[in-house]
Write a protein that binds this DNA or RNA. Structure first.
Lengths: 157, 157
DNA sequence: TGCAACTAAATTGTGCACAACTAAACTGAG
DNA sequence: CTCAGTTTAGTTGTGCACAATTTAGTTGCA
């Protein structure tokens, strides 16, 4: 029995196997990012936040949460760690004291150059041609939407 | 946006996007399992361990770890929680006192019936036909292997 | 036989995810 | 104007993941 095969043929439904494959693939990818991001002292979720800010600086916590599908329970402590590392600042907005604006520091902006070394590694590591990458990405998006819709439609007991 | 339009820069962005898609999809799937497994008082990783034991009872922690790609740092506390819930027993093997054998209790075996209600939900939630499921599972396995091989081949600083 | 090297599981510490809740600020219908 | 309801962040508690280390048990071989 290999790591990708939880049981004998036919005893585990293919649907469950795809979910396990997804779970394994996601962890493998995160593990590679961990290795690649170690010199930058970033975790993968922190890298995602930095990508969002490099793309568009000065976002609210709410906006970052919408972009990454993460809530304040995950983002608040993560952003505090990025602040402590000197990569971002957090400040209450004057016009709406509820919201907090996250901005890159010079150091955070400068890290971008280092981070540009990451994607080429990912491309080589995936080992798929461009069409396959595009096709898989589309499938992942469909799957996410479909699964979330199904979950939201379940009776809320 | 089609693959033909993408230059080198575009493909790099796409690689990161596939990884993010994978991360989002995996979390969505886990979220659905969370809802479906709530009546069974199981988390998704706990469900995976139970699946492995329903398939083949009486496994060492090491064997479960190999099947699920999880180390003892994750499994030890998880198995203690399953034991506390009355689903498994943990006992040192007499012939090798280093290893611990995990066995289903009657209650753990009985939970199988409840668990059989889960996979049909997953199948409907994924919203893919069988060929697509098979194709995606193959891609996920390939991706996991490729990414792990790439990571293991990186210079070990 | 003695003991260094190895193995299996557990432990420790960090950082996500996420549910549930709280605090503070804002909004709008009456 | 007021205050009930909403919004935005943050807090608390649980449970993975995983690196690093520890403990206990086993094995090989000089």
């Amino acid at each position: 029995m290999t790591s990708q095969d939880l049981g004998e043929k036919g005893s585990l439904l293919l649907d469950d196997q795809l979910c396990f494959g997804l779970y394994s693939a996601s962890r493998a990818v995160t593990s590679l990012y961990r290795t690649l991001l170690e010199p930058l002292d970033l975790t993968y979720p922190q890298y995602l936040v930095m990508l969002a800010l490099w793309e568009h600086d000065a976002q609210q916590v709410k906006e970052l949460g919408a972009a990454l599908n993460l809530d304040s329970g995950t983002l608040s402590p993560l952003l505090k760690r990025l602040e402590k590392a000197g990569l971002v600042t957090r400040e209450r907005q004057a016009d709406d004291e509820r919201s907090v604006r996250i901005m890159l520091t010079d150091q955070g902006e400068a890290l971008r150059e280092q981070a540009e070394r990451i994607p080429p590694h990912i491309g080589r590591a995936l080992g798929f041609d461009l069409d396959t990458i595009v096709r898989l990405r589309t499938s992942m998006d469909q799957l996410t939407e479909s699964v979330n819709a199904y979950r939201d439609a379940l009776p809320t007991t």
